[in-house]
């Protein structure tokens, strides 16, 4: 039991359950399966983006431009849809994902080929991408009545009683779990982040992997662009403003080390769910939105402290007796 609780993912899962139960005491309806599914559905986009962000953070980088990428691709697909309502939605989704991929590749290329720190690159592209949204739309909104029925309804339509939006996130989780565990590139991302020097000596190209991570993060952001504007049935300049911080927070809470090389898909998903539960539960029990921000912030700080403790270098194990104890 003790070792089980020391596992951070198990601990986080227990915390989420406890949190949900506590909310359930005040508001029993919160625990209805339909509501829990709604909470998951509401967190889907955060989960997808957090998984992309995790790959980037694993390589010792950070992607601040995800929300701006989402806003830009969202605006582009919404405008395309209103201009050409006859184009099939899957084509638009593909176009959005492709555009997101390109935006991510721009980040990755700047980091890889020019060696500019990721935080600087994505701070810049964040403003650029967001600025382009304004240039494209002239600050105007694309509202629900300008979108086709299919465009708006697909994420909401249900498959086996579960909305398509939630299905998409499940598929992304499964693919990402496979990628990080069973694909060469996925494993090399861990190696590159854990020890870039050693990775280089082993013939792993760290820069190329950073490029790959940024590309995937961009691709997922592009996918989320469509999901976001269709779900909320509106596209405007400030869509998802500041959402990149939630995404990074989800990673950190889920145990992804900001120093790179450490982090799991499970942890990341749980980190996003934790934020999702907080975001959905606090209004239900009558906590003001201002407190919600403070609570999310406090959780992030606590998570960082917990990470720092568990990651603290214990030093080399030199003494025989000490070596024996650890086994």
């Amino acid at each position: 039991m003790k070792t089980l609780l020391q596992n951070r993912e198990v601990l986080l899962a227990v915390l989420i359950i406890v949190l949900a139960l506590m909310v359930g005491l005040v508001m029993p309806d919160f625990l209805l399966p339909s509501n829990l599914l709604a909470v998951y559905n509401d967190t889907s986009i955060l989960i997808i983006l957090a998984l992309g962000q995790m790959l980037v953070i694993l390589t010792r980088c950070i992607d601040l431009s995800v929300a701006a990428n989402l806003a830009l691709t969202g605006m582009v697909v919404a405008m395309l849809n209103s201009a050409y309502p006859d184009v099939a939605v899957p084509v638009l989704v593909l176009a959005g994902a492709l555009l997101g991929l390109i935006l991510g590749m721009i980040n990755g290329a700047l980091v890889w080929k020019l060696g500019i720190p990721a935080i600087v690159v994505t701070l810049g592209t964040m403003s650029i991408y967001r600025g382009i949204v304004f240039l494209l739309s002239d600050g105007a909104w694309v509202n629900a009545h300008e979108m086709s029925a299919a465009f708006v309804s697909i994420p909401r339509s249900e498959l086996l009683g579960i909305p398509v939006l939630a299905w998409v996130s499940v598929i992304v989780i499964v693919l990402m779990a496979h990628f990080t565990r069973h694909r060469r590139l996925g494993r090399e991302i861990y190696a590159a982040g854990n020890n870039p020097t050693a990775a280089f000596y082993t013939g792993i190209q760290v820069g190329r992997l950073q490029f790959v991570a940024f590309s995937i993060s961009g691709l997922l952001a592009g996918l989320c662009g469509y999901l976001w504007v269709s779900r909320y049935a509106v596209a405007y300049v400030d869509v998802a403003a500041g959402f990149e911080l939630q995404v990074i927070a989800a990673c950190v809470i889920g145990g992804v080390s900001i120093m790179g090389g450490i982090g799991t898909v499970q942890g990341c998903v749980l980190g996003a769910l934790f934020l999702g539960v907080i975001n959905n539960a606090l209004p239900v029990i009558g906590v003001s939105p201002f407190w919600q921000m403070a609570v999310s912030g406090a959780v992030i700080v606590i998570a960082v402290i917990a990470n720092a403790k568990s990651e603290r270098k214990t030093g080399r194990i030199i003494l025989k007796k000490a070596a024996l104890q650890t086994h």
Partner: peptide, 30 residues
Amino acid sequence: HQETVLFDELSVTENIFAGHYLTHARSGRL
């Protein structure tokens, strides 16, 4: 190398095979 450059957080197996992982021929799965 003199300073053995390896990956602390990864398993022994992964340290041995990093960069030249063994994969299933058809699917490319590790």
